[in-house]
Computed example of a mutant assay.
Amino acid sequence: MTTVSLSVPQAGELPEIGAVLDSWQSDSGPLHLHTGDLGWYSLRGAQATAQALRVWRFGEHIAAIGLLDGEDLLRLSIDPDLSDDDTLAQQIESDVIAASTAVFGPGAAVLEARGAIRLCDRLQARGWDADEPWTTMSRDLSLPVEDPGIRVEIAESDDAEVWTAIHWSAFRGVPYTADDRQRFVERWNEMMSGPFYSQAQSLLGYDDSGLPVAATTVWSAGPDRPGLIEPLAVDRDQQGHGYGKAIAFAAARSLQRLGSSSAAVATPSANTAAVAAYTSAGYVPGAEVRDLRRDG
C-alpha cells in the first residue's frame, strides 16, 4: 500500500505545483486554494512561497497542497478524486494536529479546506469548530461581460507605485510612507517576475479626470477553468462611486480574454459592501462556507 508523505518543496518545484493546482480548478467544484493565491503570496519571493507550502504525496503523485498563509492559517486544496480518501485524510489530520510543528505550532489554528470532505469530517469529530463565514462568488464568462464604464489599463512594472498605493489605501488606511512604498513596490515587482504571473494580469481603473482609483489582479488557471480575482481594491477616498463594480467588470473581461470559464472570488460575508459590489457586477453568491478553527 502506498503511504502518504509530507514535504516542504523547493522553489524550483513551484511551476509543477502550480500546474497541478491549475488542474484541480473546476466550475463544478468548490473555490479552494487557487494558483492565484500562490501568486499573490509570491510577493514575498519564490523561496518564501516554497517554504510556506506543504505538499502531501501518494508516492510521486501530488495529492494535496497547502499554503501556510501566516503561522495559524493553512489553506488547503485536495485532488478532487481524493476528497473522500480516508488514508489521505487521516495522514493530513495527523500532520495538522501533531506537536511536531510540521504544519501548525501549539495553540489556535484555522484550516481552510473546501471540498476536503473526509478531512473536515475527521477534524470536526475532534472538536474543531466552524469559523467566520465567507461568501464565494462566481461570474459565468460564457456570455459577454459589460463594459466597465471607466478607462482600464493593464498595469506594467512602471505602474507599480500607483497600483500599490491604491491597494495600500484600500486595505491599510494609514499613511503610505516612503519606506512602505519602496518595500511594497519591490515585492510587487517580485510577484510580477515570479513563477505564477505568466497567467495573470494586473489592471488599473481611472476616473473621468484621469485619476487612478481602482486596482486588481486576476489569475488564470488555464483555458476553460475558473480564474481568480486576488486582490481587488478601490482607493479609500474614492469609494462609494461605483468603481468597485466597474473594476469587477474589468476583472471579468480580463479573465474572459485569458480563456477562463468563470471569474471567482471569495470575501468575508461580513464585508457586505464587497458582496454588494460583486453582486451588482453579475457575480452570483454561492452558499456560505466556513473554515475550521481550533481554539488555543
Results as ranks from 00 to 15, higher is better:
74 L>A: 06
277 A>S: 04
160 A>T: 09
145 V>W: 07
72 D>G: 07
58 F>P: 05
33 L>R: 12
128 W>R: 03
211 L>Q: 12
159 D>P: 03
284 V>N: 07
251 A>F: 00
107 G>M: 02
116 A>C: 07
282 G>T: 07
101 T>A: 14
49 T>N: 05
122 R>L: 15
235 D>Y: 05
189 N>A: 03
124 Q>S: 13
108 A>W: 10
137 M>Y: 01
76 L>D: 02
47 Q>E: 15
156 E>H: 11
249 F>A: 08
152 V>L: 02
126 R>G: 08
250 A>E: 00
234 V>I: 03
107 G>Y: 08
43 L>E: 10
73 L>P: 00
82 L>S: 10
98 A>K: 05
75 R>N: 12
177 T>E: 06
137 M>L: 09
237 D>G: 13
232 L>G: 00
47 Q>S: 13
162 V>A: 13
9 P>Q: 11
63 A>T: 12
44 R>M: 09
42 S>L: 09
159 D>M: 04
196 F>P: 00
103 V>Q: 00
89 A>H: 04
55 V>N: 10
63 A>K: 08
232 L>P: 01
129 D>V: 15
144 P>W: 13
185 V>G: 03
43 L>M: 12
196 F>M: 06
113 A>D: 03
82 L>M: 10
89 A>T: 06
109 A>K: 09
104 F>V: 06
78 I>S: 06
180 D>K: 13
70 G>A: 01
39 G>H: 08
130 A>D: 12
187 R>K: 09
258 L>E: 04
249 F>H: 12
55 V>K: 08
179 D>Q: 15
148 P>W: 06
253 R>H: 08
132 E>D: 15
276 A>Y: 03
170 A>H: 02
155 A>M: 02
285 P>E: 04
291 D>Q: 14
271 N>K: 06
27 D>E: 11
199 Q>F: 12
48 A>M: 09
218 V>Y: 01
245 K>W: 03
133 P>T: 11
275 V>P: 02
200 A>G: 11
98 A>N: 12
224 D>S: 11
86 D>A: 11
176 Y>D: 14
102 A>L: 07
115 G>M: 05
15 P>D: 11
73 L>D: 06
286 G>C: 02
223 P>Y: 15
28 S>P: 00
235 D>Q: 09
117 I>S: 12
287 A>D: 15
99 A>S: 14
148 P>T: 08
138 S>G: 10
103 V>E: 00
70 G>E: 02
10 Q>W: 08
6 L>I: 09
243 Y>T: 06
164 T>R: 11
202 S>K: 01
2 T>L: 12
201 Q>K: 14
